[in-house]
Computed example of a mutant assay.
Amino acid sequence: MRSGQVLVTGASGFVGKWTVVELLRAGFTVRASVRSEDKAEAVRQAVTHQLGEDILYRLSFVKLNLMHDPGWTRAMLRIDAVIHAAGVVLSGGPDNPQRVIGPAVEGSERVLRFATLAGVKRIILTSSVAAVGYGHGSVRGVQHFTADDFTDIDAVRRPAAAVTGATMAERGAWAYARQEGLALTTIHPGHILGKGLDSDVSPSLQLIGWLLDGSRPKVPDIGVSVVDVRDVAALLVAALHQPATIGQRYLAASDYVSFAHMGFILAAAFPDWPVGLEVLPDWRIRLQAAFGGPMRGFINDLGHEKHYDRSKAEALLAGPLISGREAIVAAARSLIQFGLVSSRTTVESPAGGN
């Protein structure tokens, strides 16, 4: 598929905005799903800043809600493909897991159901490595996962909303696609960082903010597999171009980076910022997680170092993924640029980075 009209759900999100930009850059017409006119204007501004105003004639908007049916029938009219980029990203474990699980599972089902009713066959689903790397036993240490690995939520010792939601949504999507004959591809990002297009960035960048401004000077002795948001958007669009991606899963994660190493990267790139570098012992994390809050989301990763095979993603993009270091530095620069973090010292131009 080299042209046509694509519906992008969650178009005002961190991934969604970049996906809209990359689709327009590639020559597609985009119908962008948003929750309000304010969100639509933010997408227009992001597109204009990247591509200029002349491209806006290929961009339109529709107001949709993942949890409600109204509007979806009209939204699917004359659509050639759907990129489902919408979801709920929280900085810590939610008080109510259904805040994440509900939109992930029910939202994906609603997208597929209305696409089927409209005769839309081509679907690109944004999932997560959370649907890949959990429930594989109590093996500690370095683990390697490929696109053939699936999370077993029944075997996850401490179920997390993000893991449960992503896994159930993907499992349901593949079952529905087989039943209805849909041409489905799933993209599984790691921890999404990189350059923000405006101040409405993902909570996934909050970790960088905590480290950069020293508000969380002590970090867990764990890490994440990082991916740059620009690579995620590029993969979503590349999947439309390549029919061979139908029926395939792609893991989008460049480098595993420990939180301590993130701190060293930020301290080197932003020497005037009070970057937190102290590592918390595991027992402190377990204690804090027992009372909820941000640490709850990390409990399943203690003692594990998860690496995800990026070879299929790099083959699809015909080149390497952006490095974890570059994604981290770009995220920090965005937080500074949009005034989302503040330093106790005078900030000079960041050293290093690309």
Rank of each mutant, 00 (worst) to 15 (best):
I101L: 03
G102V: 00
A104T: 01
G107L: 05
S108H: 04
E109K: 12
R110D: 05
V111I: 12
V111S: 00
V111F: 03
R113D: 13
A115Y: 01
A115W: 03
G119F: 06
V120E: 08
V120L: 11
V120S: 15
R122L: 11
R122P: 11
I124M: 14
T126A: 14
S128T: 10
S128G: 12
V129F: 12
A131R: 03
A131V: 09
V132C: 15
G135A: 14
G135Y: 06
H136N: 08
G137A: 09
G137I: 13
S138K: 10
S138H: 14
S138F: 09
V139D: 09
R140N: 02
V142E: 12
V142F: 03
Q143I: 02
H144W: 12
H144R: 12
H144E: 12
F145D: 04
F145V: 05
D148I: 02
F150R: 15
F150T: 09
T151Q: 06
T151K: 05
D152K: 10
I153T: 10
D154F: 01
D154E: 13
A155C: 11
V156L: 09
R158G: 00
R158S: 06
P159M: 04
P159T: 10
A161H: 04
A162D: 01
V163H: 07
G165F: 02
A166R: 11
T167E: 00
T167A: 01
M168Q: 14
A169V: 00
A169Q: 02
E170Y: 02
E170G: 04
R171K: 15
G172D: 05
G172Q: 07
W174I: 05
A175V: 07
Y176K: 13
Y176S: 12
A177C: 08
R178P: 00
R178E: 13
